[in-house]
């Protein structure tokens, strides 16, 4: 008997009689309101350490980034054509070469109001490490792409096929030393969300 057969047999012998899978309908009885959802998202994501900016154009984003960072001689990467004046595209085969990335700018699919998270999967970027390795990360979010809850978030991606995707809520952080919050544990030290 293989371990698989052994485990499955033991589970089958041990599991109780079938219990019903509950309905989730209750969690979809919400009122969708784009303005309120966006306002809640901004409040929440700032609370967890991110910065948000309402902008009307990509030029505004570039201007803001140039104001916030001294990008001279620093490596900026983005898959978006709109940032070609300040950022290169990453097309390499060895992602270790991203180690010196100062700032990476990525698009996102949508954001979640209740927890400040943005969903991004590999339909929008090729290299998973880009979410984690830069010193600073910036997201571009379309202002109508905010859902109120995680239930609505999974409604958006329920049938989607992806290799990798993540909810990202704020900059990397830790409070492992005496519960003192420190931003920039292993991933980005800061997160900016540009709402366009």
């Amino acid at each position: 008997m293989t371990s698989k057969e052994q485990i499955l047999a033991a589970v089958k012998a041990s599991q109780p009689d079938l219990k019903e899978l509950p309905s989730l309908d209750f969690f979809y009885q919400d009122n969708l309101n784009q303005d309120e959802d966006l306002a809640q998202f901004i409040e929440t994501v700032e609370f967890i350490g991110a910065k948000t900016y309402r902008v009307n154009s990509y030029e505004e984003i570039i201007a803001q980034l140039q104001q916030d960072f001294d990008l001279k001689g620093k490596r900026v990467i983005s898959p978006l054509n709109e940032f070609s004046t300040i950022a290169e595209k990453y097309t390499g085969a060895d992602n270790h070469t991203l180690a010196d990335a100062e700032l990476i700018i990525l698009p996102t699919h949508f954001a979640v109001a209740e927890n400040g998270a943005c969903w991004i999967d590999d339909h929008l970027f090729d290299e998973r490490l880009m979410l984690f390795i830069p010193q600073h990360l910036a997201f571009v979010l379309k202002k109508e792409e905010v859902v109120p809850t995680m239930h609505r978030a999974y409604e958006r991606i329920a049938g989607k096929s992806y290799g990798y995707g993540a909810f990202v809520a704020g900059p990397s952080k830790t409070a492992d030393i005496e519960q003192s919050l420190v931003l920039g544990a292993h991933g980005p030290r800061s997160l900016r969300v540009f709402i366009i």
Binding site: F27, T44, I48, N115, M150, Y154, Y164, A166, F167, A175
Partner: peptide
């Protein structure tokens, strides 16, 4: 199912540290 994650991710970190969600909830499929 994937949509069940909606419930568990709402509960997990609020119960753990009081954060609304962990910074990263990474979904590894392929």
């Amino acid at each position: 199912q994937r949509r069940h994650l909606g419930l568990f991710l709402r509960l997990l970190t609020r119960s753990a540290t009081g954060q609304p969600i962990t910074t990263y909830s990474s979904h590894f499929a392929k």
